[in-house]
Amino acid sequence: MISEKMRKYLRPTKKFPHVWCPGCGIGTIMGAIVRAIDKLKLDADKIVMVSGIGCTSRMPVYLDFNTLHTTHGRALAFSTGLKLARPELHIIVVTGDGDACAIGGNHFIHSARRNIEMTMIVVNNSIYGMTGGQVSPTTPYQAYGTTAKLGNIERPFDICDLAIAAGAIYVGRATCYHSTLMEKLVYDALQKDGFSVIEAIAQCPTFFGRLNDFKNVVEMVNWQKANAVPVKKAEKMSSEELEGKFTIGLLHDVDFPEYTNLYRKLMKRAQGGG
């Protein structure tokens, strides 16, 4: 059932049924984003949702904001231009692991480095869903994909470590199972004056699940529950105990001058002021 709160933000005509498979985690994440926006009482006219290409990148079309579905990997680059031209807009970038970390990896690290204000939500299902189950930069070592039938021999990226190392000022991780935490992280990220990244771990039952011997969606969500370790708890655990698990919660929160603010100051100086 769609709640009344959710319905308020959905586009009323033509967009449904949506493209996502039964059991897909993206809808849960969309719900968390919408609830965070609703709680912040942001003006829909001032919200821009930008995406690249892939399953997650189909999200903007369903939501009644200013929505921009760009080319593969480029959502952050389009957003950078838009944010500089219209600094008053709230930009939310929704992207997948392939979109953000493979083809869009360069834009990811440079957007973080610049610290331009926007919130990037990376839905990580460890696989290319839209094209049918190929391995991605976050596919675990030895997991299976249609382009790694004998097991993946590449090391995966840790999206949050990558974001922190590149300069993002707010970084957090949650899963579809921990959707309340996800909502809280998005709520806080949207208020940060800089580049914030939320990694949202999601199940892809159709491809990752079937290729990697998960029996059903419930088993995949239970895997999230069993392997996610809250940050505080992880601090007390040894590296052996953390083997194969991942931390969730707020991982990084600092302040640093924001790019469009710095540019506004530069503009004043160029015009002979301040």
Partner: peptide, 30 residues
């Protein structure tokens, strides 16, 4: 910046053309 406009050096040419499309969507001649 003297005329109230923005300049940015992007990470590559793909990012550059993407950014100008984004700015144009925001209403700026790009």
């Amino acid at each position: 910046p003297k005329v109230g406009g923005s300049f940015i050096q992007m990470e590559d040419e793909i990012a550059s053309i993407s950014a100008i499309i984004g700015a144009s969507i925001g209403g700026a001649k790009s």
